[in-house]
Design a protein around this nucleic acid. Sequence first.
RNA 1: GCUCGUAUAGUGUAGUGGCCCAUCAUGAAGGACUCUCAUUCCUUCGACCCGGGUUCAAAUCCCGGUACGAGCACCA
Length: 486
Amino acid sequence: MLEKREKKERRVGLPELKNAVKGKVVLRFAPNPNGSLSFGHARGIVINGEYAKEWDGELILRFDDTDTVVKPPLPQAYEDIPKEAEWLLGYAPHRIVIASDRIPHYYEHAEQMLQEGFGYVCQCSGEAFKVFRVEKTECPCRPNSPDHNMDLWGKMLDGTFKPGDAVVRVKTDMTLKNPALRDWPALRMQDTANHPHPRPGVGSTYRVWPLLDFQSAVEDHLQGVTHIIRGKDLMDSTRKQTLLYAHFGWSYPETMYWGRVKVHEWGGFSTSQMRRDIEAGAFTGWDDPRLPTLQALKRRGITSEALRAFWVELGVTQKDISVPLSALFSHNTKQIDDDAPRLAFIRTPVEVHLAGDHPAQVEVDVHPNHASMGKRTFTFEPATVWLEEEDMAKGNLRLKGFADLEIEKQSATVASIERSDQRPIVHWLSETQSCEATLIVAKDGEIVEHKGRMERHDYPEGTMVQLERIGYGRVLDATTILFSHS
RNA sequence: GCUCGUAUAGUGUAGUGGCCCAUCAUGAAGGACUCUCAUUCCUUCGACCCGGGUUCAAAUCCCGGUACGAGCACCA
């Protein structure tokens, strides 16, 4: 029989995947390519991707681009998303499927549905059908014969019907307890003459398009998906799709759901809204550091490892949660601190002449814990240093790694090279080894550019550095740092 | 309104009837190290939504309540 575990051990990582067979697991992540990937999308990629890795399975990246009117696809997204996904995953998705390339497959299944009588063409308006749904009564189109349905289907396809005239429904049961499940719509018509699909070769080719629940269900089956892990807002989708699977004689994949996540600092955001704002010029692009997109996070210096650790830690609970950005940042600090060279950045620089005796130059570590990263050299010819205005107000100071200073108004005298008392330790810059620089900080939806002086360096763009006593940042160029987090 | 789901420390999470006066992380406070308000290390703080029930035993099962969220689109 079952033996009790000796001790309860804390589970680490993701929960067990039910009915998973090593090497046979197929998962998918299916965004709408109507914009770049956001922080929220990352959860889908990370969770599905980590399971695929754990089980030597496959991860499908599927573009659910079946709406050309309400959420029209963005051509650029077809190029960006695979790159963003690969960056985040650490590997390229094993398969890429584009729904708009596969319309004939969906038609084929729609026709099977009509011919076998578990689907019908409904000519009721949305309003009219709503009444049937609420009253648990059948609409007059429901009893149509397969032949009649095929005839109406032909009229949808050839344009005799216009968008809004007809829709294909899956026959479930109008008395089902859950109103969401009653004879749900599977395919509808779209005005692709005025709203062509942006992908070349697709354009205005099709008038009839599948809706998410149908397209996704058929495609999951076609692709052999074994496990679906998605937001719990799609729970009713699972129920609708399970009903459809039963009609086709298929068995539905294992499912798991996660709840809603809000980030304290960001609140709600939608891809469509971001797209409008970017197009209106409110943001510089999808990588604008104010935006909660993967591109922006990457640009700010958040590593994919940190993002993965963050999402794995949240797991796949169905709770609706609200997390502070600091949770992500603490993962990031762990990732970058060991490799981040230290640099001084003086925010409100005050120029101070040094009086008194002192060496001609001084050397300090590039990284306090890693001598192998080398030394930084500061020279005092001229004998001028830059200090933060705020620090100057504190009185006598210890220049980190250099000397004790007696501060008298705007003048400073070197009192001791050795640390002689508990005066505050501050960061500083020598005249020769510094230059004017900008620290860009994105906070509360605003971008603030702090002009100051920064230590000269030749780190390439993209290097993560730690600005002493300020926080981490990413090198944009020799005189610009994009603030990451403290 | 109907339907579905969730409820453990400030935050996030472990826990599927006894090992739990509850795990881990983060956070906060204090300390060690350090010539950074960093890193690392140590200590401390802090929670099972409420009410019933089942049981020798409940965070864990059942019922009710409450709170929050989602679906009921010819969006995804």
